[in-house]
């Protein structure tokens, strides 16, 4: 159990080298080893989506990954989006539309949105709701999140056009 593995990962553009127990979850690695506590843990069984991060370009549940699986990977977490005084357009849209209340699911929700906004047109409300269906939010009833995502999706589509 205690034999440690050396892993090298890049998180938000910064390279980290650490020795970890093979059983350490990626969530604990990010939160405890690297101090990146923006990634939250809601269920530890892959349902709620609060721990969503982007691993090599795809959203992933950090609670279902071992840190050692991230060896050689490039990871993006919420800390890699905008900062408190310079939010990204997605974060800004969340704020404008009041798409967060307690803010606990928000980092995972944002990382899912980052992923789906890059991959899908999200042209209507139904598509947006489908895209968000792997992330639970208990505060907002999703309505304002849908509006925020729709605004960013429209903007991205018109930028591409």
């Amino acid at each position: 159990m205690n034999a440690r593995e050396r892993i090298v990962t890049t998180v938000n553009g910064r390279r980290y080298e650490r020795e970890v127990e093979p059983r350490m979850l990626l969530t604990d690695f990010l939160r405890r080893e690297l101090g990146l506590t923006g990634t939250h843990v809601g269920c530890e069984h892959g349902v709620c989506g609060a721990c969503t991060v982007i691993v090599d370009g795809h959203s992933a549940r950090a609670c279902l990954c071992f840190a050692v699986q991230a060896h050689g990977s490039e990871i993006r977490t919420v800390e890699g989006l905008g900062t408190a005084d310079a939010l990204s357009d997605l974060q800004e849209a969340f704020r404008k539309h009041h798409a967060l209340q307690c803010g606990f699911c928000t980092p995972g929700m944002l990382m899912t949105c980052v992923d789906v906004l890059e991959k899908y047109p999200l042209a209507d409300e139904h598509e947006i709701r489908e895209a968000l269906s792997g992330n639970l939010c208990r505060c907002t009833g999703y309505e304002h999140i849908v509006r925020a995502v729709a605004e960013v999706a429209n903007k991205r589509r018109s930028e591409r056009a």
């Binding site: 939160r31 405890r32 990146l36 506590t37 923006g38 990634t39 939250h40 843990v41 977490t77 919420v78 800390e79 989006l81 905008g82 900062t83 408190a84 005084d85 939010l87 974060q91 969340f94 704020r95 404008k96 009041h98 967060l100 307690c102 803010g103 606990f104 928000t106 980092p107 944002l110």
Partner: peptide
């Protein structure tokens, strides 16, 4: 009015109980 608590919550810079060690 846009919420004053949002910047820290949106940027992953909030402080929840489990963030404390």
């Amino acid at each position: 009015v846009r919420r004053l608590e949002d910047p820290r919550l949106l940027s992953g810079r909030a402080r929840f109980t489990d963030d404390l060690e």
